[in-house]
Design a protein around this nucleic acid. Structure first.
Length: 290
DNA sequence: AAGAGTAGCAACCGCAGCCAG
DNA sequence: GCTGGCTGCGGTTGCTACTCT
């Protein structure tokens, strides 16, 4: 196709670090005229920069809602979990961290967390593992393209913090529950329960992000959002059990609304009866409680 | 004190998706 | 349906500050 570049290199445009004056011009212009039309901004703001550069500077540095300062341990923890879930989808991860930019998170990951993760010997994750990093379970697609989480069902159990989940109090998540699941030791016990968990949504690709972002997410054939546990009975016959629950639809809502992290975390706790697998991925099974 | 090595971060680059014409 | 401009995203580069020898 060959599209003309955003800005050619020989137009006498400034490159490299931005000066305070350039920052001020850009900030003043956007305060008055708002974001958007990046291509026109340099000319109108009197900047010798390309529009792309202006956009980047604004989004990553000048925006007033940007949070400055070190990444907190809470944020770091969330980044790690989200990265395990999403991979290098920095903008999505940043969307869960108010005030942080994708560039900042990417840099933080590359300079700090990636090395640490490597040091902890985690082998590079396959696509499959990325969306289900839980040690003793795996994820696969069945012949009908359904997404199937296979493995220790206790991994999907979410131990409820006292007083955080009405759903838990009502026993909605009992299907996920088993004894001795809250301690790390239970994660590596000798005989994993291989009950598979089936999520009855049809997907073309194994990509949780797409599932979470899908507008028609998680409707079963009856039009309800419900959760189906695919189990194997004593005779080895596969069967689907509707285990009720919220909440993939709700999960999607939370996801798409981009709530502030604190609310998001605490409200995730509220709906873990239906969100077991996802919450497990996001928050682990031992230390997810905010 | 000085040079080399490293880490952190800002900015750049190229590609892909979206959408208006 | 096609084309091309705009925007957003992720990977990469390069500069600066800091640490080590």
């Amino acid at each position: 196709m060959g599209r003309s570049p955003c800005c050619s290199k020989d137009e006498g445009l400034n490159r490299g670090a931005w000066t305070a004056d350039e920052d001020k011009r850009l900030t003043d212009y956007i305060k008055v005229h708002g974001e958007g039309k990046w291509r026109n901004i340099p000319k109108r703001a009197g900047l010798k920069r390309c529009g792309k550069s202006c956009r980047l500077r604004w989004l990553n540095y000048l925006r007033p809602d940007i949070k400055r300062g070190n990444i907190t341990s809470d944020e770091e923890d969330l980044i790690i979990r989200l990265h395990r879930l999403l991979g290098n989808r920095w903008s999505l991860i940043a969307g869960r961290l108010p005030g942080r930019t994708d560039n900042e998170i990417k840099n933080y990951w590359n300079s700090t967390l990636a090395k640490r993760e490597q040091g902890e010997k985690k082998p590079s994750l396959s696509t499959t593992e990325k969306i289900n990093p839980m040690a003793t379970s795996s994820i696969m697609q069945d012949e009908t393209q359904n997404l199937v989480l296979v493995g220790d069902s206790t991994l999907h159990h979410m131990e409820q913090p006292s007083g955080t989940s009405e759903a838990a109090k009502s026993g909605q998540s009992s299907e996920y529950e088993s004894s001795d699941v809250s301690s790390p030791a239970s994660m590596s016990r000798e005989e994993p329960n291989l009950e598979p968990l089936m999520v009855d949504c049809t997907v073309g690709e194994l990509d949780l992000v797409e599932i979470l972002d899908a507008s028609d997410f998680r409707l079963n054939e009856s039009g309800n959002t419900s959760q189906v546990m695919n189990t194997v009975d004593n005779e080895g016959m596969s069967k689907n059990e509707n285990v009720g629950g919220t909440s993939y639809g709700q999960a999607h809502n939370w996801w798409s609304e981009g709530l502030e992290m604190d609310n998001w975390v605490s409200d995730l706790a509220e709906m873990t009866s239906g969100l077991g697998p996802f919450a497990s991925i996001l928050y682990g099974t031992e230390d997810w409680i905010p």
